[in-house]
Simulated scan of single mutants.
Amino acid sequence: MQSKPTIAIIGAGLGGAAVAVLLQQAGFKIKVFEQAPEFSRLGAGIHIGPNVMKIFRRMGIEEKVSAMSSHPDFWFSRDGFTGDYLSRIPLGDYALKEYGAAYITVHRGDLHDVMLSPLGSGTVQFNKQLETIEDTGSEVVMTFTDGTTDTADIVIGADGINSRVREELLGVEAPTYSGWVAHRALITGAQLARFNHNFEDCIKWWTEDRHMMVYFTTGRRDEYYYVTGVPEPEWNSSASWVDSSREEMRAAFDGYHPTVQALIDATESVTKWPLKNRNPLPLWSRNRLVLLGDACHPMKPHMAQGACMAIEDAAMLVRCIEEVGLSEYQTAFDLYAANRVERASKVQRISNANTWLRTDEDPSWCFGYDLYGTPLVDIGSKVEGAA
């Protein structure tokens, strides 16, 4: 390898942003390629657990993220029809004391902006959609749809469920439609004020075959977000999302509690997204290519840990590279898989099953996890599915 090897990151979403910042802070030379023309405050809400706030502490952004976010005291689960409480999972001060960091909910766009802020201007190259990638043995050659090419010593695929890097490792295979859709909407505080209801900070309304997760996305409580999980047998659109409507929402949640009906009445714009899956991958890396996040373990959003798992992947990958040195990249990738596959697969399984925190269970195995405080397992301990 060169004296100053280059690491290319394909995709600058939350996982890509995290791995870029952590690699930069560790002194590595990086290039980040993003297919979007720019980033803007689009998207949706997101949960960040104490397990990831501790990674943000290492990145130097914990306080800024905390200051702009909502800090729910509980995760409430309630029966969608009767409103009866199914669980009250303590967060707030309890999370700070028991898990070592806050539990927050925030707008994904706001979080993304803060995560990217430590990177130098020009680090992220936009309008760079990866077309082909070739591992020559001595370097990786990347060709983009704009006709340009670039090279790197290592390539990290943080390019989501439709990862081009994953296709290079495992061949072309479309993700499968899960049979569920997610409706997403942001409601302003002014809209909420029209309704005399107790809109709790973080609540999931459940019935047997569907749910609605609702929470504030700012510390000012001026934005309230919901995301649903609703069965829909087929998805016949090639689009990543389509417009929905209040009428469709009323039909999907017919008979639900009056507070849910008020939320639907307050909705001005709602979209509908297909939820897609992949089976657990047989490998996460090969030679100079390695995957993280949705590129290797996409999951339904029902556990609110998908982005958190991508950020944990990023932190563990950098930790393993630092542990053994980039000249031993294959050992680093094997060590990364040995320390991530079991946890990520467990979260993927529980998230897809949609059972998380429906009853009063102990979430400490997830929220209390300290990536930097947990000793690394050796490569011989890796589980089935690792590279």
Rank of each mutant, 00 (worst) to 15 (best):
I9F: 07
I10C: 06
G13K: 06
L14E: 06
V21I: 11
V32N: 04
F33P: 00
E34V: 08
A36W: 00
E38K: 09
R41K: 10
R41D: 13
G43C: 07
I48C: 04
I48V: 13
G49F: 02
N51Y: 01
M53R: 07
R57F: 07
G60E: 10
E62K: 05
E63A: 14
S66G: 09
S69E: 04
F74T: 12
R78Y: 10
R78M: 14
G83K: 10
S87F: 08
G92V: 09
K97C: 00
A102R: 11
Y103L: 12
V106G: 03
R108T: 04
G109M: 02
G109Y: 02
D110P: 01
L111H: 04
D113F: 07
S117P: 00
G120N: 11
T123F: 04
K128H: 11
K128C: 07
Q129L: 13
T132Y: 04
I133L: 15
E134M: 08
D135E: 08
V141M: 10
F144P: 09
D146L: 00
D146I: 03
T148L: 09
T148R: 06
D150K: 11
D150F: 05
G160P: 08
G160L: 03
N162M: 09
N162Y: 15
N162W: 15
S163E: 09
V165L: 12
L170N: 09
G171L: 09
V172K: 13
A174Q: 13
S178N: 00
V181Q: 01
R184E: 06
R184D: 06
A185C: 14
L186P: 00
A190T: 15
Q191S: 15
R194P: 00
F195C: 02
N196H: 14
N196D: 15
K204P: 00
D209L: 03
D209Y: 01
M213I: 14
V214K: 05
T217L: 08
E223D: 12
G229V: 10
G229E: 02
S238M: 07
S245W: 10
E248Y: 07
F253V: 01
D254G: 02
Y256R: 09
Y256F: 15
Y256S: 10
V260F: 03
D265E: 15
A266C: 08
T267M: 10
T267C: 13
T271E: 13
T271F: 12
L275I: 15
L275T: 06
N287Q: 14
L289W: 05
V290A: 07
V290D: 02
G293D: 08
A295G: 12
M299I: 04
P301M: 04
G306Y: 07
I311T: 01
E312S: 04
E312C: 03
A315D: 09
V318F: 05
C320V: 08
C320D: 04
E323T: 15
G325K: 01
T331Y: 01
A332R: 00
F333E: 01
D334I: 00
L335S: 05
N339V: 11
E342L: 14
E342Y: 13
R343A: 06
R349I: 03
I350Y: 12
W356M: 12
D360V: 00
D360L: 09
E361F: 08
P363A: 14
D370G: 11
G380A: 14
V383D: 13
A386C: 11
